[in-house]
Design a protein around this nucleic acid. Structure first.
Length: 834
RNA sequence: GCCGGAGUGGCGGAAUUGGCAUACGCGAUCGACUCAAAAUCGAUUGCCCUUACGGGCUUGUGGGUUCGAGUCCCACCUCCGGCACCA
């Protein structure tokens, strides 16, 4: 007898799957299209190919693969593709450091990922493989950009960006760590630069409303997105500055507190600030303050703890509800990005305004009665953010503030001083990067077509796509995109007037690439279109999406936005890309997040080498509920390896035994083992359906294998005994196949012949699930006193009689009176005594 | 501060509809096999009292509902994640 040899078994089946292209599926209209099968699109988030795959990848693809196999064996035609999110910073930073072109490092990493995915035995349709960095792919990323541009959903405007003065480059928000440049540690500054945006804010309401269209998403992901979009209902109210002849609209969620406004604050970046102060005595200090704020990092500015700062403008605005003139300030606690960049300050009912008023000696006027001891900072009980009756608000006095809210808004709306309004925290998506390793933005700038000295933005015609990335020598950005150095590439002809024009040198955020890859998988070799609508109609939406929760907001919301925009443009017929979402938890080691610097990383390749992919995959699924994290344990891996080895030994032992009389097994003493097998079928099936409870599913297969071990030696001599052990072993193989596909396939082939993945998922036999007898639990006053075997169909009276007959029960009834009898048929009897 | 999630043996975790708390795995102890070790197989393993039979206690803390609560309700504590000067 040879031992369990995962290397040989795994290589054998991987070769079969590769040679026979087992997991490839055809599109509608292609030969081999499965017309009569329902489809299922199972998708894991595509990897970012940098270095080698880590254990998080293994978990994601092990979980997704288990789901894919489970669905296939339930009769679904499963599409399960793979690709690489290949543009982005690690390859580029490596290029800056070593001079190696990003494409080379990326291709090397992709090769490693591809090889390991095969070694893991993931059931991928390799005919659909793609990389977002190939011209065949980013050609269509550029096409989508143009589609959005035509529709007005892509636009260029000046915006504040994060700037690293040392590296002389714009940084993505993700590259700013604690207010410093990720690469060199220099504190970042804010600058205003022309940038490209996608108008995701136009979809804010639909992104909120269409949560209803989703079948099953984790509640916390929906909540996180909802908070990120941050919809607030309130009013826009206009305050007028007569001296400067300017109107200042503000957004407020508390129009009921308008009478309590005692000052007015502009954000330091407010565009009208310069006009307001030009030529006034306060000009100097205001400029000085604004400049100081501009140098602050986002981190510093966002600190709620630090004292409020600001400078008076020497100007005032009129409060539209009472005609009162209130002074204007500039202060950095007001943000330009939210609302209108200006606020009415109501210190009595807003903690921040209160703090500012205290610091600057400004009046605080209560307009709502009430007190919140948690919030109150003075003997008047202010600030008070809650509800209550109105005061100091003219004709609204005494009214409930929620009622007055509506009346005040309606009253202001009569003569245009205000209106009800909705505001979002969500901002438009800044997609341009002054970076090399990304998809070039497909527009050119033409002076001749422009007006008033500003060049025209001319989209590149679709038939000229892709705009390929030029080769450059130096990948380090120096205040402009590295692409700007490719002068021959930059200088081009205007598609509109054929005159000289310059190419856009910014590239797109990599999140753009990954916002539509799941559609390209459906038609990945199409050279005439991004996808064939028939293919998209057939396969979309993704039935099950699997990935890390770290993408709960950005990637998932961008992909939802793209889907909606593309549907509006007539290219898709679904509103939501991912019907069901599963977010897997992070694996830690020694209780800490894995990192190279801590030296606590787990290399999947090492474990696959030592124990085989089946062990590594099954262990990951057994660690705990996959949506939760878990701490890696080498002993745990050994335990799972022991389990698979036991299954293997069982197979070898029973393989040579010819007994196949299952009928005899069923009626004889082998019945309990058959019953255990069917119990396991039922358990694993339900655990899959109940939110992928793989840990308990695997535990059930372990129980089945343990039971077979316990019973086998006693069964071999009995009629049908060996047949029962064989069935139990084959069933265990069949059930473990989604986690340990190689071993599952091998054991099945040896015992039953044929291919386990072509077998329908087993069905539990109800007759074997039920038993003639049940264990009756007997309690006295709710405490367990005895367990009695009882007939499953015994009546309540019979059960009571059995319970009272028990010696152990009697002992606790002695000298007491039974005041109540609870009988749960088939389960328990509880006698209440006094 | 706001919004989510979680607290169960020495450890990871199980308990599906309010009904046997601690499945399965790890670790530990003992035994078989062996010259020996590894591997493997078998047994024991929540805590306390008891030689035993048996009894008591136990799901973060405190209360409540119920014949019966890990599960439901109220209050609180701790940890993790997200957002955060968002008007």
């Amino acid at each position: 007898m040879s031992g369990y040899d995962p290397k040989a078994i795994e290589a054998k089946w991987q070769a079969v799957w590769a040679d026979e292209r087992t997991w490839e599926v055809a599109n509608p209209g292609q030969s081999g299209f499965a017309q009569d099968k329902p489809k299922s699109y199972v998708l894991e988030m595509l990897p970012y190919p940098s270095g080698e795959p880590h254990v998080g990848h293994l978990k994601c693809y092990a979980v997704g693969d288990a789901i894919a196999h489970f669905r296939r064996r339930h009769g679904f035609e499963v599409i399960h593709p793979m690709g690489y999110d290949a543009f982005g910073l690690p390859a580029e930073n490596n290029a800056i450091k070593t001079g190696e072109p990003p494409r080379e490092a990326t291709e090397r990493s992709i090769e490693s990922f591809r090889r390991q995915f095969r070694e893991w035995g993931i059931s991928i349709d390799w005919s659909r493989e793609l990389g977002t960095h190939t011209p065949e792919y980013y050609r269509w990323t550029q096409w989508i950009f143009l589609q959005l541009f035509e529709r007005g959903l892509a636009y260029r405007t000046e915006a504040p960006v994060q700037w690293c003065p040392k590296d002389a480059t714009v940084l993505a928000n993700e590259q700013v760590v604690d207010g410093r440049c990720e690469r060199c540690g220099t504190p970042v500054e804010q600058r205003r630069l022309e940038q490209w945006f996608f108008r995701i804010t136009e979809y804010a309401d639909r992104l909120l409303a269409d949560f209803d269209l989703l079948e099953s998403w984790p509640e916390h992901v929906i909540t996180m997105q909802r908070n990120w979009i941050g919809r607030s209902e309130g009013a826009e109210v206009t305050f007028r500055c007569e001296e400067a002849d300017l109107d200042f609209p503000v957004f407020t969620t508390r129009p009921d507190t308008l009478f309590g406004a005692t000052f007015f604050v502009l954000a330091p970046e407010h565009p009208e600030l310069e006009r307001l102060i030009a030529g006034t005595p306060g000009e100097g200090p205001v400029r000085e303050y604004v400049n100081r704020v501009a140098r602050e990092s986002a981190e510093e500015r966002g600190d709620e703890e630090r004292p409020k700062t600001g400078v008076p403008l020497g100007r005032s605005v009129v409060n539209p509800v009472n005609g009162e003139e209130i002074p204007m300030f500039v202060a950095d606690y007001v943000l330009m990005e939210y609302g209108t960049g200006a606020i009415m300050a109501v210190p009595a009912h807003d903690a921040r305004d209160y703090e500012f008023a205290r610091a600057f000696g400004l009046p605080i006027r209560r307009v709502i009665e009430g007190e919140d001891p948690e919030m109150a900072r003075d003997e008047d009980g202010l600030p008070y953010p809650g509800d209550g009756p109105m005061a100091g608000s003219g004709r609204f006095d005494g009214k409930d503030n929620r009622e007055a809210y509506e009346e005040i808004v309606a009253w202001l709306a009569e003569d245009g001083r205000g209106r009800s309004a909705v505001n979002y925290r969500l901002r438009d998506w800044l997609v341009s990067r002054q970076r090399y390793w990304g998809a070039p933005i497909p527009v050119v700038y033409c002076e001749a077509c422009g007006e008033e000295g500003a060049p025209a933005i001319v989209p590149v015609p679709e038939e000229q796509l892709p705009i390929e990335l030029p080769a450059v020598e130096d990948y380090a950005p120096q205040g402009r995109s590295p692409l700007a150095a490719a002068e021959e590439w930059v200088a081009t002809e205007c598609p509109r007037c054929d005159g000289p024009a310059r190419r856009e040198t910014d590239t797109m955020d990599t999140f753009v690439d990954s916002s539509w890859y799941f559609i390209r998988y459906l038609d990945p070799r199409n050279a005439k279109a991004a996808w064939d609508p028939a293919a998209a109609d057939h396969w979309l939406p993704v039935d099950q999406y699997i990935g890390g929760v770290e993408h709960a907001i950005l990637h998932l919301m961008y992909a939802r936005f793209f889907t909606k925009a593309l549907a509006d443009l007539g290219h898709l017929s679904v509103q939501e890309p991912f019907a069901n979402l599963f977010t897997q938890g992070m694996i830690t080691r020694d209780g800490a997040k894995m990192s190279k610097s801590k030296g606590n990383t787990v290399s999947p390749a090492e474990y696959v080498q030592r124990y085989g992919a089946d062990t590594a995959r099954t262990y990951i699924c057994f660690m705990g509920p996959p949506e939760r994290g878990g701490d890696w344990s080498d002993e745990g891996v050994e335990g799972v390896n022991r389990f698979l080895s036991r299954l293997w030994r069982l197979c070898e032992e029973v393989e040579g035994r010819g007994d196949s009389d299952l009928g005899a097994a069923r009626e004889g003493c082998a019945r309990p083992l058959l019953a255990k097998a069917h119990w396991a079928i039922d358990k694993v099936t339900r655990d899959f359906q109940r939110g992928f409870q793989f840990n308990t599913a695997i535990a059930a297969v372990m129980e089945l294998v343990n039971e077979a071990y316990r019973l086998k030696d006693g069964l071999y001599g009995e009629p049908g005994g060996a047949a029962a052990v064989r069935l139990a072993t084959a069933t265990a193989a069949s059930l473990v196949f989604p986690f340990a596909p190689h071993l599952g396939a091998e054991v099945w082939q040896r015992l039953e012949g044929g291919r386990v993945w072509e077998q329908a998922w087993p069905q539990a036999d109800p007759d074997l699930l039920s038993s003639d007898t049940v264990t009756l639990v007997v309690q006295v006053n709710g405490k367990l006193r005895d367990r009695i075997e009882a007939a499953a169909d015994a009546s309540e009276a019979e059960l009571l009689e059995l319970a009272r007959a028990s010696e152990k029960v009697r002992r606790h009834l002695d000298g007491k009176q039974v005041v109540k009898e609870i009988v749960v048929p088939g389960k328990l009897v509880n006698l209440v005594v006094r």
